[in-house]
């Protein structure tokens, strides 16, 4: 079942700046969905439309089965905005209580949930300290705790690892995996590709207000799978005809079936050419991202 189903979302600022140009995405129940794209691609705008922070110029679709913009739906959605700012005069616990109350979470539940979340996010012992004394990473973790206060079915996180150290990032990745196991859907908005690659079940790449690619990393990179055969000595003349590409002493055969390289390897051996290495290669998310960006005029810029 889709927790987010968006069709043809458009956002035009002041009638001339097209932030979103017909975005359609689908996020399934219990998956971690990553939205990536360069700065200014429209990722945050899309998230803010989902959270009613921004009004879309055109939107159709649903979130948790209700139309986009439905306030009641937000009771079951947790949200961590990018560059969030908590009131400086509140303590960590007060932050959780305040935003929990705004989400209509009862007092008893707030008490128990805030304690467990602070412990889960590694903030135990800091609950009664003012947030102005927190580090960037701690604020980020508190932000995630705040997003979980209403025990949401869907969690929308905008750059959750921003400013977090490597250990903290790993903890957040583990937390996201746990949340997925609990059956929650996580919508992750980030430009940290390695982070997304490690946790996301599916991704969408957004460039210039459009979703250019969407699917599992496996399905998006299937066309880029290839075998690279490195040889010693001179490249045989027949190589160019039988391989997809030839670079220096490297032969490239596109495809993910190992049988395609067997005849080439046989021939290389029969001609006594030394095979240095044979590597199955697949694009990673960064390559995929760069390809998506390169296919446009300029990276990410909205016009």
């Amino acid at each position: 079942m889709a927790v987010i189903q968006l069709q043809d979302v458009e956002k035009v600022y002041r009638g001339k700046v097209h932030a979103l140009r017909g975005v359609s995405i689908e996020v399934m129940d219990g998956e971690i969905f990553g939205l990536l794209g360069p700065n200014g691609a429209g990722k945050s705008t899309l998230v803010k439309i989902l959270m009613t922070v921004i009004h879309a110029s055109k939107v159709s679709g649903t979130m948790l089965g209700n139309p986009i913009g439905n306030r009641k739906t937000l009771e079951n959605v947790g949200y961590l905005p990018e560059h969030h700012r908590f009131p400086y005069y509140l303590t960590g616990k007060q932050v959780l209580h305040h935003y929990g109350a705004l989400c209509k979470v009862g007092r008893k539940e707030r008490n128990s949930r805030s304690s467990s979340l602070l412990t889960r996010l590694g903030l135990a012992g800091w609950e009664n300290k003012k947030v102005e004394t927190y580090s960037k990473g701690m604020l980020q973790r508190l932000g995630i705790a705040q997003a979980l206060m209403n025990n949401p079915t869907l969690l929308i996180l905008d750059e959750p690892t921003d400013g977090v150290d490597p250990v903290g990032r790993r903890e957040i990745r583990d937390l996201l995996a746990e949340l997925r196991e609990e059956g929650r859907a996580v919508f992750l908005n980030s430009h940290l590709l390695s982070e997304l690659e490690m946790v996301c079940d599916r991704v969408a790449i957004m460039v210039k207000g459009r979703v250019t690619m969407q699917g599992t990393i496996q399905s998006l990179t299937v066309d880029s799978q290839r075998y690279e055969i490195k040889i010693a000595g001179e490249m045989p003349a027949w190589a160019k005809e039988h391989c997809s590409e030839v670079h220096g002493n490297m032969l490239v055969c596109k495809g993910n079936d190992p049988s395609i390289v067997q005849p080439i390897l046989d021939r290389l051996r029969s001609e006594n050419i030394t095979i240095v290495s044979v590597n199955p290669v697949r694009e990673n998310l960064e390559d995929l991202f760069m390809r998506a960006v390169d296919n446009t005029d300029s990276p990410g810029a909205i016009q």
Binding site: V53, R71, L74, E75, P81, R85, Y99, L102, C103
Partner: peptide, 8 residues
């Protein structure tokens, strides 16, 4: 963003 994204 933190406040207006709440169900109010």
């Amino acid at each position: 963003e933190l406040t207006i994204s709440k169900p109010i």
